[in-house]
Amino acid sequence: MRDRRFTAISGDDAWESTKHNRELAIIWPLLGRHIAFHRRLVDLTASVKAALLLSQSIYWTRHGRDIARTSGWFFKTTEQWEMETGLSAKEQVTARQVLRELAILNEQRVGLPAKLHFRLCVDQLGALLSERIGKGASRLDWADGTVVAELLGPSLAYHRTLARIGGGVHAGLLLSRALHLTRLQSKGQVEVWVPSSAAQWTEQIGLTRREQETARRELARAGVWEESLDGIPPRLVTRIRL
């Protein structure tokens, strides 16, 4: 039984493992660098896009050049944010507002001409995250990778390049995750068709049901996303058209 609502391309249900490996070997280098997207930050910000901007801000706060000399301040243009995250200028403004309201992002304009600089309020961020995971809100050492990993939780690889295919960050994040699961499949760890219920996607990447439906529709329209109903009772499964 197949649900054709989001099916863009029909084809045989079985893919050869060698074909998967060959196609993935071609595709993977083309994806470029990825962002470590922290799912836990979606719960903190109630926004996937704010969580994405925050994830990248954490990266620059921990690894940016001269970050210690500048007391945590780093410079990014709107164009640079878009290149790194896929967020449009309007989406950046909204995401930054969310982070400012949580008191975890400071902004200031410096120099002539004035350039917008950013700084994470790491103590506030640490306190909010510690509260969410039931950990004591003591001062955290953000240079300690083990402590930071515990605080942020597991990360997902988000490929900004994939946002272009579905026309936005939500589709890019969904496709990034599905492609990761497809790569695992090529190693024999999961089925060819990836379980794809709305509840599972929300748990894994934080997208709401409506955000998922829009992203799936756009990816199907682009010809890279196929869905089917499988089993009794039927469950929704997905595969990526490589």
Rank of each mutant, 00 (worst) to 15 (best):
R2V: 14
R5F: 03
G223R: 13
E16A: 14
V190D: 00
P29H: 02
Q204I: 15
A198K: 14
F118L: 10
Q92M: 06
P195F: 13
Q108N: 07
G111T: 08
W201M: 10
V110D: 05
Y158C: 03
I27V: 13
G145Q: 07
E191T: 14
I232D: 09
S176D: 02
P195G: 11
P195W: 11
K76R: 14
D43Q: 11
I26P: 00
V194C: 14
R119E: 10
V122C: 05
L53W: 02
W142S: 04
V48Y: 04
H38C: 04
H63R: 08
G126V: 11
E203T: 09
L87H: 01
G86E: 01
T202K: 08
E226N: 15
R139L: 13
T70M: 01
L24S: 04
L179N: 01
Q185C: 11
Q92E: 06
T18L: 10
I104F: 02
G188Y: 13
F74I: 02
G145P: 01
T146N: 05
M1V: 12
L162C: 02
S130W: 02
V194Y: 10
V93I: 12
S55L: 01
R96F: 01
L120C: 11
D12I: 13
T94S: 09
E16R: 15
D141E: 06
H34W: 06
A36Y: 07
K76F: 11
E82V: 04
S71V: 12
I27T: 10
I35E: 00
E79D: 12
V192A: 04
L151P: 05
A149I: 05
E211C: 08
G134M: 06
V224R: 10
T238I: 09
G64S: 04
L162F: 03
L173N: 01
Q212R: 15
L41W: 06
E131G: 10
F118N: 04
S47F: 08
E82L: 00
D43E: 14
I104Q: 02
R139W: 08
A171P: 03
R109S: 14
I165N: 01
H20C: 13
